[in-house]
Amino acid sequence: MREALRHSASALKAAEVPFALAGSYALWVFGGPEGSHDVDLVVPEASVEDAAEALAAAGFEIERPPEDWLFKAWRQGVLVDVLHRLLGAPVESACLDGAEEHDVLGIRIRVLEPTVVMITKLLSLSEQYCDFGALLPYARAVREQIDWQRVRAETADHPFAETFVHLLDSLDIIG
């Protein structure tokens, strides 16, 4: 997965496609566990085709699933999800402006801040997917770097997210 991350980031940088690292690998950059499922990148909705072309030119196989908020790029059996909508809202350049630049595997790239990643992870919880056990190690590892007041405010009407934050409070992981 690290090689897929390196190659996808290099291809997008070379093509001057704006992007940021998201998901579990973004939290990994800040000290969380390393992702084990896929690599998540976000691009502005207006840059989707440029991103797909850049990744295809770099040897990725592009898949257009029925979901209208991402495309998938495969390389040597490893998946890179390229999201252009987060929680139903189009990714815009302003979303990437809040991302910080970090050296990731020898490449300088933007990485979504942990608070934003945690909010998107919590708001994606549903009756079909509600794995608190998968989220707990990330929350524990990067807890000091997350604005929990903001998380609470932006997830206040989402019962799964509220329950997870309550669990973190009860376990004395966050204050």
Rank of each mutant, 00 (worst) to 15 (best):
V17K: 00
A20C: 11
L21Q: 14
L21V: 15
V29S: 14
V29H: 08
F30Y: 06
F30L: 03
G31V: 01
E34Y: 10
G35W: 00
V39E: 08
D40R: 01
L41T: 03
V42P: 14
V42M: 14
V43K: 08
P44Y: 05
P44F: 03
S47I: 00
S47H: 13
S47W: 10
E49F: 09
D50I: 00
A51L: 06
A52L: 05
A54W: 07
A56P: 06
F60W: 02
R64V: 04
P65E: 04
P65Q: 06
P66Y: 05
D68W: 06
W69T: 09
K72M: 12
V80P: 03
L83Y: 14
H84G: 05
R85M: 00
R85E: 03
A89Y: 09
A89Q: 10
P90C: 11
E92K: 10
A94N: 12
C95F: 14
E100S: 15
E101R: 10
H102T: 11
V104D: 01
L105T: 09
R108N: 15
L112H: 07
M118N: 10
M118W: 08
M118K: 07
K121W: 09
L122F: 09
S124H: 07
S124N: 11
S124V: 05
E127K: 12
Y129W: 11
Y129I: 06
C130P: 00
G133R: 05
A134H: 05
L135N: 02
L135G: 01
L136G: 04
P137C: 07
A139K: 02
A139P: 02
V142F: 02
V142E: 01
V142Y: 02
E144N: 15
E144T: 15
Q145W: 06
W148K: 12
W148V: 13
Q149M: 05
R150C: 10
A153V: 10
A156N: 10
F160C: 07
A161L: 01
